[in-house]
Simulated scan of single mutants.
Amino acid sequence: MNTKQLEYFLATVEQGSISGASKVLDVAQPAISLQLANLEHELKIKLFERNFRGVSLTHAGSQFEEHARLILNQINTAKLDLIGQQTKCKGKVIVGLSQSLCNVLSVQLQTELEHRFPNVELAFRVGPSYMVENWFAEQQIDIALCYNTDLSKHAASSLPLISENLYLYISPRPKNPSYSELSLFGSIPFESLQDYELFMPDRRDALPKLLEEQAQKSGIKLKTRNAFGQLMTTLHYVSQGFGLAIYPSSATCHLEASHQIRAINITEPELKREVYLRLAEHQHKNPAVAAVFELIRETAANLHADNSWRGELLDNKYQQPSVINIESAVAG
């Protein structure tokens, strides 16, 4: 059942015929007849008695008319409320996140926001995970995407967003001869990573800490070299065949799509890290911040669905198609 069927049904009731409804709605009669037939089939009841003069409601049809009018009135009221809510959503919202998360989220998030909440200005504050955590604790940002579970004490809303997979990345055409065989691998045990030199971000960041903890558990020592300050510079170096790095697909999705870089699965164990979404306590009543918070959840689900952001989606609100959309979530 959909609103089009309800509108066609009520127009037919009011005009007393399908031809009359056709004129009022400016819709071809066969289209109206088809929608009414589909509605009756779905409800498994006969709504109209048909004769040469037109149509008249059956007893069941009269009962359904009351419900149809109530449903459409509620939908129209909701639309008006949402329009009002969108006008309330205005102002600047600052999102703090790492370079890899900004890489995967920023374009789609900004595009959707401009389309759906044009009065909201979105600013990204990008830095290492430990800096994002500090900004959030000091109320310098409104929303944080981070890896630290302890930040929930500063948050009005907090939820695990995704458990992202980590991969070893290599160029399809490595320049280093020692990488030639590795470039053919589909997977590699974590313990074997000790045989290769890896680019490593600042050791205060979440990723090096995770890798070092796993190396200690596995009884190995990883050989590392300092990554370049900017993520894209490091990945460009890797794509040119001069190095190796461990990242989530959020950092590399654009390079993978253009086949400039390829992922090797890490096994024994698989490496994952959880990404958390936090809304600052001092902004919990701000409609614009709430709108961006919800839109990040929806965008993350979309990116997970199209394989740009690989891992286990932990926030399932927008995983499946739903009649509840971002605007209604903000309004509610």
Rank of each mutant, 00 (worst) to 15 (best):
V93W: 00
T87A: 13
G91D: 00
M131C: 10
G127A: 10
T87D: 12
K79P: 10
F64A: 04
H67C: 13
M131T: 11
F117M: 04
N73W: 11
L109C: 05
R69W: 02
E65C: 09
G91F: 00
G96L: 03
G61R: 11
L109F: 05
N103P: 01
L101C: 08
E121C: 02
L101F: 15
L57D: 02
N73S: 15
G84L: 11
Q139R: 07
K92N: 08
W135Y: 14
V55S: 05
A68R: 13
P128S: 13
L57T: 04
F64W: 14
Q139W: 05
P128L: 11
N134L: 05
F124A: 01
E121V: 02
T58E: 05
I83M: 07
N103G: 01
G96R: 08
N134Q: 10
M131Y: 12
T58P: 05
I71P: 07
G96Q: 05
L70Y: 10
Q63H: 09
N73P: 08
L72W: 06
A137F: 06
V120L: 04
K92C: 09
H59Q: 14
K90E: 11
V55Q: 00
Q108W: 05
I71G: 03
S62Y: 12
V126G: 01
L70V: 12
K92V: 15
G54W: 12
S129C: 04
S106P: 03
L97Y: 07
R69Q: 08
G91S: 00
C102H: 12
V95M: 00
S106V: 05
L109H: 00
L80A: 09
H67N: 14
S129Q: 11
F64N: 04
E138R: 04
G61F: 06
L70T: 11
V104C: 06
M131S: 08
F117T: 01
E133R: 12
A137M: 06
P118H: 00
V95G: 01
L101Q: 13
F117R: 02
R116T: 10
F136C: 01
E66G: 04
A68I: 07
S56Q: 14
T58C: 03
L122E: 05
S62F: 09
A123R: 12
S100F: 10
C102F: 13
E138F: 04
H67D: 09
V126Y: 02
V104S: 04
A78V: 06
A137G: 03
E133A: 02
R69N: 03
R116Q: 15
N103M: 06
S106F: 02
